[in-house]
Design a protein around this nucleic acid. Sequence first.
DNA 1: ATGGTCGAGTATCGA
Length: 270
Amino acid sequence: MACMHGESRVGAAMRIATWNVNSLKVRMPRVEEWLGYARPDILCLQETKLADAAFPALAFEALGYQTAHHGRGQWNGVAILSRVGIDEVVDGFCEGLEADTDTRLISATCGGVRVSSVYVPNGRAVGSDHYHYKLSWLERLRRHLDHTADPASPVAVCGDFNVAPEDRDVWDHRRFAGSTHVTQPERDAVEHLKAWGLVDALRLRHQEDRLFTYWDYRAGDFHTHRGMRIDLILVSKPLADKVEFVLIDRFARKGKLPSDHAPMLVDVAG
DNA sequence: ATGGTCGAGTATCGA
């Protein structure tokens, strides 16, 4: 068969997904349910809030997924699940600078695609140390790609960017004026990342506004559709040319114990 | 009214 571990799957269709689960411990039933009906080939998770030793690798293996996780517990934590092989796993950054202790990035090669699961720092308040850290983290991610990947080959950078790329990506841009997630430096940082050779997969297929991936738990924001599009799947040209279908699964934001983020998936033709 | 609710852990902090 042409889809054993690590083998190239050139010619095979592929479904790539991302989901900020806001605690995998709490969300595991929802993730298992979602894997059961969405059946992604690759799923990037963010905010597992688990240490590596607590990551439920065996449960995912039983569902047909190999996994790689990078987390220290309590905060952050990222993972990649794959049923098309998982090789060359790299935890965090490897661009030759100081070690990454934040567990916000993991990369692996899955079915011929270099995949990264990213959880960009929130930034908290504009101008704060956290805000500047967010900007430098995004720049560091760009350098990471410069050193570890090739935009002429299949690359997917998936996750929670904590940046709404344009005004149409928040429920009321006037209400966000001057706050994090929408400032020009944050948007410029995402643009600089994309300038490496990535495009925003959702915008290849959908141009309408009010397509959100995140809704605050408070104030009934989900039910009044006060959301933001801050979760992105960025793909290099070899994948972008073959994107056939993109979906934000709002259904998964409903029901019992939902994450505050919806999962998103991209189908790439074979 | 400028909040609200979650999840970490068990008093608050972070988002």
